[in-house]
Design a binder for these strands. Structure first.
Lengths: 244, 244
DNA sequence: TATAATTGTCTATATCAATAGACAAATTTT
DNA sequence: AAAATTTGTCTATTGATATAGACAATTATA
């Protein structure tokens, strides 16, 4: 194993090592509260100075992933990564049952604006039609696990921003407009480094990776309701694709 | 827009800027062959020195994303990203039809070895059972688009490595063992920085991101056939989740 | 209790990353 | 032809990153 490192890549060695340790923990190489190899051993394995390993560990301690105890060693603090299901009936609140005791969706911002080409196409509207944009953050046990931007046809769903602010749930808000059921028509997935806004909203460290889904939700008879882009912090969330 | 940058984060400013430009292009802000803003303007927008912007551009030129012409400007070289479908009948060769004229799967390495706990669980075998591991690379128009590690029960599929080397297709190889149809039982998706091996196999630059799928393929009656982990370069591939 | 193992802190040095400024080279515009 | 715009190259300086070595502080073990 022990993947090697790339120098003068624009990503410092300590961050590469921190990423690898994080990945190693997520892959199950270390149980919770298990001890990491001592710094000297890690330095040798990665072929770097002990101080460089210490920088990586310091970053992960800062993130709450590791816990260092002088004289004893360095231990895995928490290694939970939520498994977020994606399927025909993807619902934020339902999906994480059993994995987190407290789940909620927070409305950060809403706006009424003309639809961009991308959004208009997704919703099957004419370009420039008025749409309502909702910016929301999903939290599980107080920790941000998703950051979504959703668009709705302003004509059909006027006031959904208020409903969302009140109920804190897309599903509940749509019920007020007579939508009892909706399906996920398509999901396109990609990944990238988190931008500054996502770093702030998701409480991530620079260099963090986000999984990005772009989805269209439709009524059972195929009428587009919502166009949404959602960013998930890759270090805290994995996506499980279930039957559609 | 113009997301800001994070200093002393372990990720250099030039790489952060390169990532943002890449994202901006992928988001459709610039058409193919469109000119980027001049270096001075970019430097001002990001609040950095012109030389820092030049480092970012140089990296993207090296990647073949941009093309710089002295006296004229800097232009978008190519912004195609393959859309790789994921669904119940995910097949490498079929999925990319129409997006690339030449598609193939190359067997890099094969080995017979005891199953790790993870693989054994995925295939429903006892831990330590003998399995065949196949390392393959998917290519579209000569460019690497996927890097897969697949495991098969060595008892049932003895010789599949030879069949794979001959046919270059998992589907064709399985036919020789009487498997005419198979389904994808589950897919778990994550993202991380590419490790050194992936960088080499996928011809990526350090710091690149890979989408990772871990999947189990089963016969129509639910018997596990293959356990596989596949890495996709996020800058070249997006995953489209279709009906299962 | 003494020893070993492990993390924490300090100093010093070399290399990479970023800033700053000046000017050359190529292209487009006036 | 001249001016303006834009990329390319050079020198110099500052701060972050990485290496090297030594030793202190804490904990577990012989």
């Amino acid at each position: 194993m022990a993947s090697s490192l790339e120098r003068r890549s624009g990503v410092s060695l300590w961050r590469q090592i921190a990423d690898q340790i994080l990945h190693s923990i997520a892959a199950g190489d270390f149980a919770e509260n298990a001890a990491l190899p001592p710094e000297v051993a890690l330095a040798e394995r990665y072929g770097v100075n002990r101080h460089t390993v210490r920088s990586a560990i310091a970053a992960l301690v800062q993130d709450g992933v590791l816990r260092a105890e002088q004289g004893r060693g360095t231990f895995v603090q928490s290694r939970k990564r939520l498994s977020y299901p994606i399927g025909a009936r993807t619902r934020f609140s339902e999906g994480l049952q059993g994995q987190a005791s407290e789940r909620r969706s927070v409305l950060l911002e809403s706006a009424v604006e003309p639809a961009s080409r991308r959004v208009a196409e997704g919703l099957g509207l004419a370009k420039g039609s008025t749409v309502i944009r909702l910016e929301t953050r999903g939290e599980a046990d107080g920790q941000p696990v998703s950051r979504a931007t959703g668009w709705f046809d302003a004509g059909r769903f006027a006031g959904i921003d208020a409903a969302m602010a009140e109920t804190g749930s897309v599903t509940a808000s749509l019920k007020r407009f007579g939508i009892d059921d909706y399906l996920r028509q398509s999901t396109v997935l990609s990944a990238r480094h988190a931008d500054a806004a996502d770093l702030a909203d998701l409480d991530l460290q620079p260099g963090a990776i986000v999984l990005v889904t772009v989805a269209v939700n439709v009524t059972p008879d195929g009428q587009p309701i919502q166009f949404a882009e959602t960013r998930f912090p890759a270090e805290r969330v994995e996506l499980k694709i279930s039957a559609l």
